[in-house]
């Protein structure tokens, strides 16, 4: 007689795979580590997924919010067009948020809107972003995707800053590319990494202090 498998088992396995990949090894993980994290046997992994690559790919899609169809034939094979389904929606969401914020003109409020928009996308898609960053070390697909996404966002912000400098709104002595990266790196950090990576003793889990990034944004304004 075969035992009944818990209905949430695939979900637990995929979440475990995401955690193990995000912890620093990227795709260089062993099936055993994922099985241990999910508290199942290795053979259970292969009941649901054809091989380790299929499991890891489905975990990336899981982090991107996609779910396997309920009546899909098991074990699941590697999903098609992984990059388009996992990364494209993220890139589009980021680009739209940045465009939206920067579309309102030049000045303090625009930069504050930008900081807020970057933080929001980072918070909302933290799981996928963590995963892609960890993967970027061992997987060229993720590396290219992360790089292209970051470069596109930095390029968009940089053009805005340069235009603003030409209009005399932003301080002309600052390198627009670097300021764009400063704003992106800082917003990303406060909105995402802050949660888990910091020994925040004494902070009592207070919300991310975006106020500091706002100060950074104001520092770009031309003084006087």
């Amino acid at each position: 007689m075969s035992r009944t498998r818990p209905a949430d088992q695939p979900q637990r396995i995929l979440e475990a795979a995401c955690r193990v990949m995000s912890s620093g090894l990227g795709r260089d993980v062993r099936a055993q580590s994922i099985a241990d994290e999910a508290e199942v046997g290795v053979s259970t992994l292969y009941h649901y997924f054809e091989d380790k690559d299929a499991l890891l790919d489905w975990a990336i899609l899981w982090a991107a919010g996609e779910r396997p169809e309920a009546d899909a034939a098991l074990p699941l094979a590697r999903p098609a067009s992984l990059e388009e389904r996992a990364v494209r929606p993220l890139t589009v969401a980021l680009a739209e948020a940045v465009d939206d914020a920067l579309g309102s003109g030049y000045g303090e409020q625009t930069l504050l809107d930008l900081v807020g928009a970057l933080a929001e996308v980072n918070s909302a898609r933290a799981g996928l972003l963590d995963l892609l960053e960890a993967l970027a070390r061992t997987d060229s697909m993720a590396a290219v995707a992360v790089r292209t996404t970051v470069e596109r966002v930095v390029g968009r912000i940089s053009r805005h800053l340069a235009d603003g400098q030409a209009r005399g709104v932003y301080a002309g002595d600052l390198d627009a590319d670097v300021v764009a990266e400063l704003l992106l790196v800082s917003s990303t950090f406060y909105a995402r990494t802050w949660r888990t990576d910091l020994p925040v003793a004494g902070r009592g889990g207070s919300p991310p202090p975006l106020a500091m990034v706002a100060r950074l944004a104001r520092a770009v304004l031309r003084s006087g």
Binding site: Y190, L198, A211, M212
Partner: peptide, 23 residues
């Protein structure tokens, strides 16, 4: 007039990123 923690994080994250972690 800054929160020492918030200021330290702002400084450290950006210094580490630009001085050594940038691709």
């Amino acid at each position: 007039a800054v929160d020492p923690w918030d200021a330290a994080v702002l400084v450290d994250v950006n210094l580490h990123y630009f001085a050594r972690l940038r691709p």
